[in-house]
Design a protein around this nucleic acid. Sequence first.
DNA 1: CCTCCACCGGAACGGAGGGGGA
DNA 2: TCCCCCTCCGTTCCGGTGGAGG
Length: 336
Amino acid sequence: MTTVIQNARVLQDDFLPKEIVHRHEEVNQMSKALEPVLDDDRPQDTFLVGPSGAGKTCIARYTVDKLQEQVLDVESHYIDCWQHSNRFRVLYKILEGVGTSYDVHRSTPLDEMVSRIEAVDSPYLLVLDEVDQLEDKGVLRKLYPMPHITMVLIANRKREVTASLDERLQSRLRSSVTISFDRYTQAELVSLLEDRIEWGLAPGAISTAQVERIADAAAGNARDAIGILRSAARNADHEGAAEIRPADVSAAIPTAREELHERNLKKLTDDQRAVFDVLAEADELPPREIYERYESRVPEPKTERTVRTYLRKLDDYDLVRSAGNGPNRTYEAIER
DNA sequence: CCTCCACCGGAACGGAGGGGGA
DNA sequence: TCCCCCTCCGTTCCGGTGGAGG
């Protein structure tokens, strides 16, 4: 029935392309760190850091998959910590990966789960995505003494994760390989989109101009770019159009962005929200001014130090942007 | 070039709350 | 069930940093 979308699978977030379009350097670095597993040697833990939509998840899954094709007795498992943020669920997912989760339930003792993981005798590559969202870092503490587990940690910032860990785990991670990702450039996004378009859409279903608009709107974020493309293509199909029209793209851009913005806003506490509101109602404010306005609008204001922490969190969520240094620093809310 | 000022964020601490083990 | 421990959050203290202005 659809004419624009030929293969919807290719437009899904979690679709893993056969070939990586960019990021060859990052794949090489990661392969090199993990390759010792091929010779029965101990691989290095790796840490992938960078902004969201920069390809971290994709590269991690791609590299681990490739490696597994080469060796049979390597276990690997991917866990999105955003969805599995407590200890039980993470450990459960790991056991699932090795097929010993059959009789595990709510009241299974923690140590029982841990010792089952310890009992795995083949190397285990564990990919923990969005590890900074892991509510219970204790899970990492349980895992780090296990020599057969190699951790691939994915996060926006490395410090965010390491700061909350204990000394021994920090020192294990200090010797890990850190791979930094930057946002995609506009040109990279265009070719990345064209790759998906070739496999996912009918020939000639979208013009170069519209692909470029999508790449511009995504601002270096591949997940957003693909999301916009998907939503525009659906819209065109829904209305029985033969190709993606400019109006389809226009309609897709705000929905993709607003959804993320809304999701992030919902995660804020009342105090964090108040700080955000101060900025949303103003143009650009220096920290001093932000605090004074925040202080006057909540019944029991937190300290300035805490508000500084909030501002950084808002920055992480792409809700707020800072500019300048020292006394010239200002903050502004990012438009949806 | 030096000093001052505003701001940044690390470290250490304590209280609150939740979950696990006896 | 109760108690303890672990973890998180916010606070206090403070050293570091980078413009602005003398």
